[in-house]
Amino acid sequence: MKKIEIVSPAGNLASLRVAVDNGADVVYASFNDATNARNFEGLNFTYETLVRGIEYAHIKGKKVYIAINTFPQMDSYPQWFSAVDKAVDADVDAVIIGNIGIMKYARETYPDINIHLSVQASASNYESINFYKREFGIKRVVLPRVLTIDEMKMIKERTDVEIEVFVLGGLCINIEGRCYLSSFITGSSTNTDGACSPSRFVRFINEGERMKITLNDTVLNDLGPAETSPYPTSCKGRYVRPDGRKEYIMEEPESLNVIELIPRLIDAGVDALKIEGRQRTKAYVGTVTSVVREVVDSYYRNPQDFVMKQEWLDRTNANFEGGKLTFGCYLEK
């Protein structure tokens, strides 16, 4: 039985090295431009640093995937084609693509490369996945965070495409690739600019002991002295319902952590576990990668007697700054 792959994020060369050194099988990264869904200031790779990163990973027997997963408009798509060219030239092990136009280019230009379907393509059922398999020969799909483990298992039974699922990190409560909340409030969206809720639109306004948070002048929250907030996005905002109650109508400020469910994910036939967070620090990448590595290895060593260690939970939880954690919809919708 092929062992489940651990796929760690890297926003720079230092994080990539730390991920490799802490047990990642694969590091995923991207170029520092709008061709990827984490297009943040000062983050991601130039061609030259990517080449160095890939050399480092390959020497250690590990892989690197490149995400080219936004949706170009008008006459900008040659830049996305060029990102595919550069990734292939740098000897990446797979390109993670979201848009069918870019996928067609990648497949026709490079018949032999591994293409993974990005979560941004929001392929949430086997018919969609098999469509991409037939048309573009995708090897793997990154599943959107809208499925239960039972549904993942059913997908796996109806396709020979490998499935990769998120195990840890920021949680999109709305299906990826079809969320326009940031675009509606700020004009800048993940699909088109590669950034949800860009920091240039965020304001933290202190009002006595309280702190108001706005996004492009739309109020997202008003925190009391004891309250904290993760990075402010529209989906994690607090709004007023018709009955006057102020609630997190879409999602509490919480992050996904399903490391306790790793044994069930492995049993369901999941091929790879993805850790979210190319924008996070190398300390984060190193710690969470090593925890996931320990959990996975421990389960494979002795599935019958596997016990979740409190230490693993403590080490991951410490990285979420006291924020709440959730299983998302992995067990129930």
Binding site: I173, I175, Y180, L181, F184, C329, K333
Partner: peptide
């Protein structure tokens, strides 16, 4: 009213302390 997002979660049920199931 323009569609902005879709989720696995039912936000209306959530407002009534229920879930989609």
């Amino acid at each position: 009213k323009i569609p902005l997002a879709f989720s696995w979660r039912c936000y209306t049920s959530r407002a009534y302390d229920l879930n989609k199931s």
